[in-house]
Nucleic acid binder design. Structure first.
Lengths: 226, 226
DNA sequence: AGGTTCTTTGTGATTTTATCACAGACATTA
DNA sequence: TAATGTCTGTGATAAAATCACAAAGAACCT
């Protein structure tokens, strides 16, 4: 499962853009200590309450961090894509606190992992590394606060509109997903999504079929009537 | 308005517990660079979108950080009390990003402020300071994620129950506040709070009067029937 | 091909939450 | 006492969540 980076150096340097600013010493350390892993789509990376003993950097694929409610509903907090590291893990490592959410591979992943003690050491030793981690954490705080604003104040139809526009394939105007997946991203229930989508279809803004949403009028979606 | 700490050293050391672990050099720097301010209740400390050019540490009083929705509703993100510093400010300083929320003094405040460049310098220079800031930021991420879970999944009556129990004066079983204030903390509207409280009163769990909520049956509130 | 099973979607009925509109209660000040 | 401002109560309506169930579509078997 785990293996040394070895011949992947070039690819790593190219994918993990943030390493560009790193000094040669840190870079060498990184290549030496980081290990390569592959994780299949659907597999969980971390579960809520787990102790966090590593930090992960994605080379390809994407991971989703989400909260699970008592009622079984989900809400996506954020996604991590190729080139990015998981801050929340960083945060947990530095404070020895358990991981507060679930993280799952959405598509097959390739990633590098760095063990917690090594990570902690680098934060102490390398200003560059520290700045990077601070940056990640700030970004995350900001994005999570924006999510709060969205959940607390914005209407579900507006949120779904934006979701569709943001996620649609620009060329085909299509979006391959289920109502359940949209609900899990937005933190609502499937029925609510189905009904709002049906309403959009009646207005002629989209066309629905199983697993597919075809956007017909993205302008109208962008400026929904209330 | 601003003034040197001077004779306040003892009080500062006693109130800002986290300074205990600081080395003498950092401690001297802190006493030299930090300035004392007083802010009256209701006055804003930072507004959304403002550039953050200082970090604040509270000696007394309390501050509230909140988001303001388009519809005028508010939601409290967190509070800062005596002895604590504002992380969000820290985060903004380190990333040169604008402050993403409003912060207001709830009661008359006494605080120390440290200018942004000084703060940045200390993060680079002192491991202790760095750890403290990392700790604050992690705590904040975690608390904000818990808030998301609460907003997204939990019922309003349960949230209000818990709010009442958490905020009531343990001795008198009373709570001096307005429905509007509760609504602003929880991110809902005043009418919703009024109606749920009225329902609690009908069940005999509380007694309502202007500006006062008297808890009669905290057990029943703790285990609400749905 | 036909039947079985599983996933996905649709929808009525009901409850909870939000919004709008307005009135009455209470407190403060003139 | 009157006037003003803040706080609370409540009906009507709309939006969102929950429950319950049915039907459509895809996949998988013989």
């Amino acid at each position: 499962m785990l293996r040394k980076i070895g011949g992947l150096r070039d690819r790593v340097r190219e994918t993990l853009q943030f390493l560009k600013g790193a000094g040669p010493e840190l870079l060498d350390m990184f290549y030496e200590k980081a290990e390569f892993v592959q994780i299949r789509a659907g597999q969980h990376i971390l579960t809520e309450g787990a102790e966090c003993n590593m930090i992960i950097f994605l080379l390809s694929g994407s991971a989703r961090a989400y909260k699970l409610g008592e009622n079984g509903r989900e809400i996506t907090l954020y996604r991590i894509k190729g080139g990015e590291g998981c801050v929340l893990a960083a945060s947990c490592i530095l404070n020895h606190t358990p991981y507060p959410v679930f993280a799952v591979a959405e598509f097959d992943l390739e990633a590098l992992i760095v063990a917690a003690p090594v990570f902690r050491c680098w934060v102490q030793k390398y200003a560059f590394w520290r700045d990077y981690v601070f940056g990640l954490m700030s970004q995350r705080i900001t994005s999570v606060i924006m999510l709060i604003e969205e959940i607390a104040f914005r209407r579900m139809d507006t949120r779904i509109s934006e979701y569709l526009i943001q996620k649609m394939d620009v060329v085909s105007g299509k979006l391959q997903t289920t109502h359940q997946q949209i609900a899990a991203d937005l933190g609502t229930s499937r029925e609510v999504v189905s009904r709002i989508l049906k309403d959009f279809e009646h207005r002629g803004w989209i066309v629905l079929s199983r697993n597919i949403i075809q956007i017909k009028d993205s302008d109208a979606l962008g400026v929904p009537v209330h």
